[in-house]
Write a protein that binds this DNA or RNA. Structure first.
Ligand SMILES: [Mn+2]
Ligand SMILES: [Mn+2]
Ligand SMILES: [Zn+2]
Ligand SMILES: [Zn+2]
Lengths: 136, 136
DNA sequence: AACTTCAGTGTAATCATTACATATATGATA
DNA sequence: TATCATATATGTAATGATTACACTGAAGTT
């Protein structure tokens, strides 16, 4: 997704596509990682020397309101952010601290119903040791 | 579970059963809620006028190490704590902010396997609107 | 009693996040 | 183009949860 396509995409969601906004979106889109605000800042400051953390917080807030991005917390005390592409859950390795995406198909589950509760969102976190770390 | 039984229980897990420790355990055991440190403090200060938050943090840390208690975070920025009795997941109502326990039996799932990953813990959070709030 | 150990407390430091005020860019209007 | 209005971006300060640290005091041991 190039900058022009991102700009259109943001406009379609009612967000004016300023340069920092486009770059933050692009960052999340290209890496498909789960960065903290600090990580985003440390990476993008190379590209946008005037960038401030406040701008990152504000921009992510906008994206979340437009349901382009979502945030979640593991047990650390920093929020993590990721672009919303399709539903999946997360696995965190206790050894290498990597966070893996896990497609829903791979965990056999259907938690769509609970009594008469309306369920809008399901978050699943797995914790353990990843394949790579187990091999050592 | 009375104070004597709790004292024994703590001893069995290598924790000296001081008065504050017993009361904090009792608090979590009796209420079966998901309090923040602040809530624990504000409630127990009535019973233990000299209690400090540091003591609560230390005590919960001990309990967590002994796997008597676990902590988790929703999207707020305060950790929540609960006693470990049996596995279950959580539902948070977006209207009344209540946190409900949901037995695993009620959500049809078996995420025990993923490739060759070793899965030690599964956390499931549901989000939506609870029965009570829907009725209004 | 003297000594050791450890639980408990209070204060200060840390760090993520938010609030706020100011500066800058954009876009419309005259 | 000059002027004005509005939205965006930035920097600094405030907030609030958690942790670090140093001290106090109780309990037990010799
Ligand atoms: Mn993900
Ligand atoms: Mn629970
Ligand atoms: Zn790993
Ligand atoms: Zn409710």
């Amino acid at each position: 997704m190039d900058s022009l396509a991102i700009a259109d995409h943001l406009k379609n969601h009612g967000i004016k596509p300023s340069y920092p906004r486009i770059q933050i979106y692009k960052y999340l889109y290209d890496r498909r990682s789960h960065p903290t605000v600090d990580q985003i800042y440390n990476d993008l400051i190379k590209l946008i020397p005037t960038l401030s953390k406040t701008t990152i917080y504000n921009t992510l807030g906008l994206f979340i309101n437009a349901t382009l991005v979502k945030s979640f917390m593991l047990d650390e005390n920093e929020k993590r952010y990721e672009i919303i592409i399709h539903d999946h859950s997360h696995f965190k390795c206790e050894k290498c601290n990597s966070i893996y995406d896990i497609p829903y198909d791979d965990i056999d589950l259907l938690p769509q119903q609970y009594n008469n509760f309306q369920i809008d969102e399901v978050q699943i976190f797995l914790r353990g040791i990843c394949e790579d770390c187990l091999e050592q």
